[in-house]
Simulated assay, not measured.
Amino acid sequence: MNIDLGGRTAIISGSTGGIGLAIARGLARANADVVIAGRSQKSLDAALAELREQGGSGQIHGVVADLGTAAGAETLFAAHPRADILVNNLGIYDDVDFFDVADSEWTRFYDTNVLSGVRLARHYAPGMVEKGWGRILFISSESGIAIPADMINYGVTKAANLAVSHGLAKRLAGTGVTVNAVLPGPTLTDGVAALVADAAQASGRSIREEADNFVRTARPSSIIQRAADVDEVAHLAVYLASPYSSATTGAALRVDGGVVDSLAI
């Protein structure tokens, strides 16, 4: 399958590292014009340098903006008012007990993980409808359907991503714009690497070995019995951003390694 997104503009939030950057890489290789955003010029410049080495024919752009805020979203809109593909990847997580999470943290998680995608979709979807073609993706999580006891606020926001994406798909019925959610499972991102770094040092295992051990012990239902790589998640996102996915909308597609033990979602 040869995916060619030449002439399409893709905007990816939360895209200077991890899954977001991997999706940006995949879209750049597919010749899309790619726009990434980051909160610091340093991280943005590093990501832009990497993307420009991917070999695609599209242009690569970057915006310094905190897309977890309304002001940051407006900065992005001013620089890049239209898009054909929108990937709402921005998200934060933490393993904090329910009884230790203050109202302010609930609000911060909701603003970043939910409202950021709502704002971007609300702005970019009308332009897609005008053109009769568009792709909107929400990067949710298996934690959105199997809420973890130690990350309840995170799980709640990821469940909200599923609700928004499914409802927006129905709102855009018949327009040529599809809306879907991607549900990664445990994935070896920079954030996960940092979380297991101390355990890896104590055990003498590598970061990869420690991440895989975490999956086997904390997510024993995993069928692949390891953490996914970011590119494995990105491959699904790139397909959903392509013309080949035209009959897939309103869906929640898992790339969780089989962590969720279910015949359906």
Rank of each mutant, 00 (worst) to 15 (best):
V182L: 10
L137Q: 07
L90H: 05
Y110V: 08
A159E: 04
N213R: 13
A169Q: 08
I207W: 10
N89A: 12
D103F: 14
E105H: 10
G167C: 11
L195C: 01
G132C: 05
I136G: 03
R82E: 15
L183F: 03
A194C: 03
R216E: 15
Y93F: 14
N213M: 12
Y110K: 01
T112S: 09
F214G: 15
D95Y: 14
H166E: 14
S143P: 03
M128K: 04
A78T: 14
R208T: 15
N153T: 04
V192D: 03
S141R: 01
R226E: 15
Y110F: 14
T157H: 02
F138P: 00
D111C: 02
P81G: 11
E209H: 04
V164I: 14
A173N: 03
T178H: 12
G185Y: 09
E105Y: 14
N88P: 01
P148V: 04
D212C: 06
D111F: 10
A146N: 09
N161F: 08
F98N: 11
A173E: 14
E130V: 13
G185C: 12
I152R: 01
F109P: 00
L168K: 02
G132W: 15
L188R: 06
E142R: 00
L115G: 01
R205S: 07
T112K: 04
V156Y: 06
L183G: 04
G144Y: 05
G127M: 11
G176M: 13
A169K: 07
I152E: 09
G204N: 06
L188Q: 09
S116Q: 07
E209Q: 15
F109M: 13
G127I: 09
G174T: 12
L86R: 02
F99H: 12
N113S: 06
K158L: 05
R216W: 03
R119Q: 07
S140Y: 09
A160N: 03
S141M: 07
L183M: 14
Q225V: 14
D100A: 08
G144L: 05
H80G: 01
Q225T: 12
G91V: 08
A160F: 03
L162V: 09
A218H: 09
L162Y: 06
A197P: 00
P220R: 06
V118E: 09
M128G: 02
L120Y: 05
R122D: 11
A194L: 13
D84C: 03
V129P: 00
R219C: 11
S140K: 01
V196W: 10
V96G: 01
I152W: 04
S206R: 04
T187N: 05
Y124G: 02
A199K: 08
L195G: 00
V196P: 00
S165K: 02
I223C: 01
V182T: 11
Y124Q: 05
E210A: 12
D95N: 11
D103A: 11
A79M: 04
F99G: 00
A159Q: 06
W133M: 11
R122Y: 10
Q225W: 08
Q201A: 11
G185F: 10
F98H: 11
W133T: 09
P81Q: 12
A193W: 05
D111P: 00
V177R: 09
T107H: 12
D95I: 08
R226V: 15
E130P: 00
K131T: 14
V164M: 05
A146F: 05
S203R: 13
